[in-house]
């Protein structure tokens, strides 16, 4: 039986590390099962719940949402379609934006702190790899599955929303420019989570501590639906364009600190 990587001719050490780490994550269904299964379930279930609420309870719920929250339309004018439109983008979108943070945190913590916990780091660090190659490999191992999963979940949730809105209202809701910008911010959120894990992993002993600290990044994301519902900010293209710029700056700062702080013996023991 030939090995999974045998025959691949690339000499890129970072890719070898990334492939090894991804194989580790996907070697156990107890790790990747919940990581993939739960978002997939919600990507289908939440749009169904939304359409149910839109059809059966939208006016009464809408009256409780702050006036003017939906593009200047008063609560009394909100019909089921506009409720569905509002909810599918302004509430479900931010909820699914937590996926890149959770996924990247889980994989990155396993990748960095896991080497320390499983005592596999000595062989790895004794190999002729630079810190840059090591970090790049581990970042790719976390980023690639995160982006694939996030795009898949956004695709499924978008398709489900469209299917339901077409069935009930004869029109498609997604994609919108705002929704696409929201999706574009996902890799940057993932990178922020990874950078925090790189920093934290050097200072903690195990995977759990690294995960717990990095997943705190979901808190600001979970505020977005409330900001939108309360009318504090309007989730549009400009909002996410600013968010992307801010995330680029924040990512650069966290990565700079993390890489500067990174010393390979810190992931030994």
């Amino acid at each position: 039986m030939k090995g999974f990587t045998e025959g691949i001719t690339t000499e890129n050490k970072s890719i070898a590390i990334a492939i090894k780490d991804m194989r580790e994550v996907f070697s156990s269904v107890s790790i990747y099962g919940p990581m993939i299964g739960v978002p997939m379930f919600f990507a289908i279930a939440l749009p169904f719940l939304t359409v149910y609420v839109a059809l059966h309870a939208a006016p009464s719920i809408a009256s409780r949402i702050a006036a003017g929250a939906v593009s200047g339309v008063s609560p009394s004018q909100i019909n089921s379609l506009s409720f569905m439109y509002f909810f599918a983008i302004n509430v479900l979108g931010p909820i699914f934006l937590t996926i890149p943070i959770f996924t990247a945190s889980v994989i990155a913590a396993d990748s960095f702190a896991g080497e320390k916990e499983r005592k596999t780091s000595e062989n790895l660090l004794a190999a002729p790899i630079t810190n840059g190659e090591l970090l790049l490999g581990k970042i790719l191992a976390s980023l690639i599955p995160t982006i694939v999963l996030t795009v898949a979940v956004f695709g499924i949730y978008g398709a489900t929303v469209n299917f339901l809105s077409f069935q009930e209202f004869g029109t498609y809701i997604l994609p919108t420019p705002t929704w696409i910008m929201m999706l574009a911010s996902a890799p940057l959120l993932a990178l922020a989570a990874i950078a925090v894990v790189v920093f934290v992993s050097a200072h903690v002993k195990g995977i759990k501590e690294a995960q717990q600290i990095s997943t705190l990044l979901v808190l600001p994301i979970l505020l977005i639906p409330f900001i939108s519902i309360l009318g504090i900010a309007n989730l549009n293209v400009s909002f996410f364009a600013y968010a992307i710029v801010v995330l680029c700056v924040v990512d650069s700062v966290i990565f700079y600190i993390s890489v500067k702080d990174f010393k390979k013996e810190k992931i030994l023991y």
Partner: peptide
């Protein structure tokens, strides 16, 4: 300190690749 989830062959291939 080898990787438990990989076969012996894949462990060797992984390290071989790091050593060029």
């Amino acid at each position: 300190g080898l990787y438990d989830f990989l076969s012996v062959r894949d462990n060797m291939l992984f390290f071989a690749r790091l050593y060029g």
